[in-house]
Design a protein around this nucleic acid. Structure first.
Lengths: 138, 138
DNA sequence: GTACATCACTTGCATAATGCAAGTGATGCG
DNA sequence: CGCATCACTTGCATTATGCAAGTGATGTAC
């Protein structure tokens, strides 16, 4: 049986990157974890229209790829807490650049003005602030 | 008939961005156009293992999305020349950040050392240089 | 100008990924 | 105890992708 889906297809670092989250949903999940403080299955399932079976598979794969950790929620044994790893936090620049590009080129963007202003004023500070928010509780 | 594939699914600028090239191939095509000076169908088809039918559809969609232009090749009537638009050139930061992330986290990356060094030494200068190379002939 | 190669695609079909709706078992809660 | 909620599964229809083999227009060598 041949696995086409996730075989390595390129020696290029961009190809490598796309092998990990070059699909519709993985990066949206990472966006939620990185910029919206989401950490639970139901939170990911809520906002976007991702099917739960696909979500389950993506979370498992992102965990396997070393981008998310999955821990028991001490306050509710039914739930799990997904958190970004260092590698995922390193993706912040990618997420920020994609958001900025979308904000610039989407005629009806929902991008908050404050994000655009913060980016244009001081990109490094914006990134540092976002990174700090993610590293705070560790 | 309902089109699921490319309907807008999010008001987030990242969602918008992923609607345009949130698939395996679109961004690789853009990478080729933006960083490898590729401009013809056969050049795109050559390096990666993209099926020609998928490539044809992607080129058409990227043109429709305003990221590529398609022009006749004056020296060969069989060929067309695909070039990035301003919007595509604006994607350089995204491409560069993805490449850098891949270079940092891919254990067997094929990323050229010079790229990593240039990025770490002066990201802005790297981007300016890449942008200048693309704008040169216009 | 005839034969052949090359170009950008198409076409037909098999396989894989995704979407959708309805479960399922474990746990929380009144 | 009864019901709601949690993180998933399962079955199946639909869509996207991969693969191999065309196709017509054009270039090129003889």
């Amino acid at each position: 049986m041949v696995r086409h889906s996730r075989a390595r297809r390129s020696d290029c670092p961009i190809g490598f990157t796309l092998d990990i989250f070059g699909d519709r949903w993985s990066l949206l999940i990472l966006r939620d974890v990185l910029t919206r403080a989401k950490s639970r299955f139901r939170e990911f399932a809520a906002e976007e229209r991702i099917a739960t079976n696909v979500l389950a598979e993506r979370l498992e794969r992102l965990e396997g790829a070393g981008l998310l950790t999955r821990a028991n929620d001490p306050s509710d044994a039914r739930q799990f807490v997904y958190r970004p790893t260092r590698a995922a936090i390193d993706l912040l620049p990618v997420v920020v650049e994609m958001a900025y590009w979308g904000a610039m080129h989407d005629p009806e963007t929902g991008a908050p003005r404050e994000f655009v202003e913060a980016y244009e004023a001081d990109r490094q500070a914006l990134l540092a602030g976002m990174r700090a928010a993610l590293t705070a509780g560790s």
